Simulated scan of single mutants.
Amino acid sequence: MRVKLPHFQDKVSVVLSDDTDEELNNLPLESTNTKSTTEDEKFSLALNYNQDKSKDRLMNYRLGISGGDIFARAKHKRRFDISEKQSFLFEPSLYYYLNDGLGAKLLLEYDYQLSKKSQFRINYSIRGSAEFSGIRWKHGFYKLKQINDTTASVLSLQAEGERNGARGFVVDQYTLGYRYRFNALRDWLYFEIEPFLEFPEQENYKVTPGIALRIEGYFNKG
């Protein structure tokens, strides 16, 4: 949930989320809850400030609490149009968690518009932190499709791992998924069904099937 503060010309807002917005290891199109867990859900509350915001540029600052840890983050977004069908996103960020220390992340994205309703996307991120040794990396390959005005799908293949750590270069997991999203019952109500296959290193890359179901409400004051 995001609440804008109008006296600051929509530059400042208060953000309350289920902590997915602060999950630094996730890619933009990644589903965050496909892995089963017995841990308590984490929440974050933050003061968000946007500077130099435009169609292809954004400087963002955030200060708040996430998972019981106080954090500060600065993130820069810059999008470049290569042609009518191609674009490139450059997004470096610097963050500091009181318990985990200083860290940095770089996200790169390449988009190719296959048609008016279909797009191919590649995401790549690397992340380093005082919290761990080595560098965490993640690749994502996506085929986005708008089926109609109320329905869309995302076919995805992701790989993640570590390099320059104690074990050198290693792939932790591959994930293949298909997300089907549709609007039903109310204009603001969205449903998602996502079957997926995981191939984790800890299981010798044996296939682990699963399915994620989500309901999302989207409210926007026009």
Results as ranks from 00 to 15, higher is better:
residue 154 V to C: 10
residue 109 E to N: 14
residue 135 I to F: 08
residue 135 I to V: 14
residue 171 V to S: 02
residue 181 R to E: 14
residue 135 I to C: 02
residue 106 L to V: 15
residue 126 I to N: 04
residue 13 S to A: 14
residue 147 I to C: 11
residue 96 Y to F: 15
residue 11 K to N: 13
residue 83 S to F: 09
residue 218 Y to A: 10
residue 19 D to Q: 08
residue 56 D to S: 11
residue 87 S to G: 09
residue 15 V to M: 04
residue 195 P to D: 09
residue 17 S to G: 09
residue 129 S to A: 11
residue 83 S to L: 10
residue 146 Q to L: 09
residue 93 S to Q: 11
residue 130 A to S: 10
residue 55 K to S: 08
residue 186 R to D: 12
residue 114 L to C: 06
residue 136 R to K: 14
residue 144 L to D: 08
residue 169 F to G: 08
residue 199 F to I: 12
residue 106 L to E: 15
residue 197 L to P: 04
residue 135 I to W: 01
residue 24 L to N: 07
residue 140 G to M: 07
residue 152 A to S: 13
residue 220 N to E: 09
residue 73 R to N: 03
residue 32 T to P: 02
residue 209 P to I: 08
residue 2 R to P: 10
residue 1 M to A: 05
residue 144 L to A: 08
residue 210 G to A: 11
residue 171 V to K: 01
residue 114 L to D: 02
residue 194 E to H: 02
residue 196 F to R: 02
residue 91 E to K: 01
residue 163 R to D: 14
residue 1 M to G: 05
residue 149 D to T: 07
residue 76 H to G: 07
residue 116 K to G: 10
residue 34 T to N: 02
residue 113 Q to N: 05
residue 16 L to R: 01
residue 120 F to D: 05
residue 90 F to L: 08
residue 51 Q to S: 06
residue 16 L to T: 12
residue 9 Q to D: 15
residue 166 A to T: 14
residue 143 K to C: 03
residue 199 F to K: 07
residue 154 V to G: 02
residue 182 F to K: 00
residue 16 L to S: 11
residue 72 A to F: 11
residue 11 K to H: 14
residue 111 D to V: 13
residue 59 M to S: 03
residue 64 G to R: 03
residue 196 F to Y: 15
residue 139 H to W: 13
residue 111 D to G: 08
residue 143 K to P: 02
residue 217 G to C: 09
residue 85 K to F: 11
residue 114 L to P: 02
residue 161 G to L: 06
residue 129 S to H: 06
residue 210 G to E: 07
residue 178 Y to M: 10
